[in-house]
Amino acid sequence: MLTPEQKQQFDDQGYLVIDPQIDTAVIDGVVERIGNGLLLGDGPDQQRIADAWRRDAGARQIAKAPAVLAILEELYGRKPLPFQTLNFRVGTQQKEHSDTVHFNAAPAGYMCGVWVALEDIDENNGAVIYYPGSHKLREWNMADVFAEPDLGARRPKPLYPPLSPKALRHRLKGLGPLLDTTAEYTLYEEFIQRQLPKMGIPPALATIRKGQAFVWAANLLHGGSRRNDLSRTRHSQVSHYYFEGCKYHRPLLNSDGKTRYFKPDWVV
């Protein structure tokens, strides 16, 4: 399905634009029901809907599109397993990050994202901004963040004493200490902003047409570009994938340095 040139590009640059072969009626239905209907939006402005696949067959179809699954298996040599969907009505303008801080695997690298354009996306309505080739940089984690003296000094303390009943119950569930992950992630974003000028990699915009998809490797630095036209929407769906035969963990939830594996809720 993929040409040798496409495989080489993904290996060298960490991204690929593909045709996910999703029916237009499915796309338009998701826009109408989720993008315009804003099913139980989980963001403060209700512009992002997490895991709509649980309630909407169209979102589930996009995440499990046969062409997408076949392409990912070609790229990674393992069966892809979708585990999360995010639907957007407008661009996020989110600061640059690597998905490896949120979702990671052992062996490393077996995670990726696929962003499907549910309408035309250009430089004015908040296209994804990304740094080609940045996936080859080492994975920056919270230990790197806290190693910066000023960021480490601002590291939030656990929400509860380590031997308190709440903290102990949390650990019994296999989770890390009860931490303010929102505050920790803000420090991570500051750290990444410091790295961008040091990389020597110019950013690019994923300007893709309705029905196209942008595939990126887990460690590719990316974010949401500026919304130059605030009157426009940017209907899109991101699906995240792990791969078969791996162990899965969430580094941001385990910023004490211990790796605690978990079982994802697979898209079924």
Rank of each mutant, 00 (worst) to 15 (best):
L2I: 13
P4C: 05
Q9P: 03
D12P: 04
Q13F: 11
V26A: 11
R33P: 01
G37V: 08
L38F: 02
I49Q: 10
D51M: 11
P66R: 10
L81E: 04
L81I: 10
L86Q: 11
F103P: 00
C112L: 05
V114K: 07
W115S: 03
L118F: 04
D122S: 12
G133N: 09
K136L: 14
M142G: 03
F146Y: 13
F146V: 05
D150H: 10
R155P: 00
R155S: 05
Y160R: 11
S164Y: 08
S164L: 09
A167M: 10
K173H: 13
G174P: 06
G174E: 10
P177C: 02
L178F: 04
L179N: 09
D180S: 06
T182F: 10
T186L: 13
L187C: 04
L187G: 01
Y188E: 02
E189K: 14
Q193L: 12
R194W: 02
Q195C: 05
Q195G: 02
L196P: 03
P202W: 08
R209H: 14
G211L: 14
A217I: 00
L221E: 01
G223N: 04
R226V: 14
R227M: 15
L230S: 13
R234A: 05
Q237L: 07
Y241Q: 03
E244I: 08
C246P: 04
K247G: 09
N254A: 04
R260V: 05
R260E: 05
Y261C: 07
K263W: 04
W266L: 15
